[in-house]
Amino acid sequence: MTDRVVKKNPVSAKFVVAGGFGVGKTTFVGTISEIDPLRTEAKMTSASLGVDDTSKVATKTTTTVAMDFGRITIDDDLVLYLFGTPGQERFSFMWNDLVNGALGAVVLVDSRRLADCFYAVDYFESRKIPFVVAVNEFDGMVAHEIDAVAKALQVGPDVHVISCDARSRDSVKNVLLDLFEVILERMMAANAAAVTA
């Protein structure tokens, strides 16, 4: 075998694409990824202890949770990954492992099923992870719906709520660039605070 020469120190970053069941997360990731979204699985064992106290036997069921992700190779030493969260809320316990270290997040919203995204919005807000809300254009979106969504979500004025079509590359690109803007603003604010402190 030939010796492998280690040349560069590649670094990677991660965005998370969250939102309710069937809102277009996989589509969003697939639209911009250079590879067909890959699927990774985590096995989860739920022990239903206490369900049947008399038997004192824990019944274990193993569920497989799948998430898909895409990759954007920026350079030979710089990679951006996009991870779609599992859509169903009952898998939300997986989010910590998925979201830890994320540079930012996109919350995809279907305006007809607004409540489906509350969990994601709360999650990123409480953990101070930069995020944007992207309203997926299922029936063709009109501008005033965006305002209505922003109002209904009760997010602060600093949270960007934008429209997007998860099937369009340009649209997905815009969402990502918007998210980067939020991230930079956040970092600069943090720097400024550090200087004045």
Partner: peptide, 11 residues
């Protein structure tokens, strides 16, 4: 991050 942005812009 600036490099990431430039890269995404070029996609």
């Amino acid at each position: 991050i600036s490099r990431l942005i430039a890269g995404v812009r070029k996609l």
